[in-house]
Computed example of a mutant assay.
Amino acid sequence: MPGTPVTYAATATVEAALVDEGLLTKGCRDGHYGTTTVTAMSQWQERCGFRGRAPGQPADGIPGRTTLTRLGAKHGFTVTH
């Protein structure tokens, strides 16, 4: 969509953890869950053992409860929803 993306505090928290994991650069920590964050989350999901639906397909990069909870446990945040 055109315009400035909305920044969300929870997204910035997840992005900070992805930065700490070396999966996202600090400059991409903007609170906007864009394509770079999706790619970083996909890499985190794969570290957690998840893969795409088809053989050889990467994880989708859409955070679920399991991958967020694991990231939070490692980086000091709690998943509540």
Rank of each mutant, 00 (worst) to 15 (best):
E15T: 08
R65Q: 15
P63T: 10
E46W: 03
G56Q: 01
V14I: 11
L23I: 07
D60T: 05
E46N: 04
H75M: 03
L71G: 04
C48A: 08
Y33I: 11
E21G: 08
L68N: 06
T39Y: 00
A59Y: 06
P55I: 02
T69Q: 05
T4S: 10
P55K: 02
R53H: 05
T13E: 12
V14Q: 00
P5R: 14
D20P: 13
T39Q: 01
G61C: 02
A9G: 05
T66K: 11
H75E: 05
A9D: 10
L71P: 03
H32E: 08
E21V: 08
F50C: 01
D30K: 06
D20M: 12
M41G: 06
T36P: 03
T25R: 14
T78K: 06
Q43C: 00
G3H: 12
G56P: 01
R47Y: 06
G27Q: 14
F50K: 00
Q45G: 01
G31A: 14
L68G: 02
T39F: 07
V6K: 14
R29H: 11
T13H: 06
T11D: 14
T36D: 06
E15P: 09
T37M: 10
A59R: 06
V19W: 12
P2R: 15
T11V: 09
P63R: 09
Q45N: 00
A59M: 11
V6P: 15
K74Y: 05
W44F: 05
G72N: 10
A12E: 12
G27F: 13
F50Q: 05
T13K: 15
M41A: 09
H75K: 00
I62S: 07
V6L: 11
G34P: 15
A54F: 02
P55W: 01
G49Q: 00
G22D: 04
Q43A: 06
T37P: 14
L23M: 12
G72C: 13
T39H: 04
A73V: 05
T39M: 02
A16S: 15
R47W: 04
E15Q: 11
D30S: 10
T37R: 04
R47V: 07
R51D: 01
V19E: 15
P5K: 14
Q45T: 05
V19G: 12
T37E: 10
M1E: 13
D30A: 09
A9T: 03
H81W: 14
K74L: 03
H81Q: 10
T69E: 02
K26D: 13
A12W: 08
R47G: 03
R29D: 12
T35Y: 09
A16R: 13
E15K: 01
V14W: 03
L68H: 03
R65F: 15
T11N: 09
E46D: 08
T4G: 06
C28Q: 13
T11L: 09
P2W: 15
G56D: 04
K74M: 02
T37Y: 12
Q45E: 00
A17E: 11
A59N: 05
A12S: 13
T35H: 10
T13Q: 11
K26P: 13
P5N: 11
H81S: 15
T67K: 00
T80Q: 11
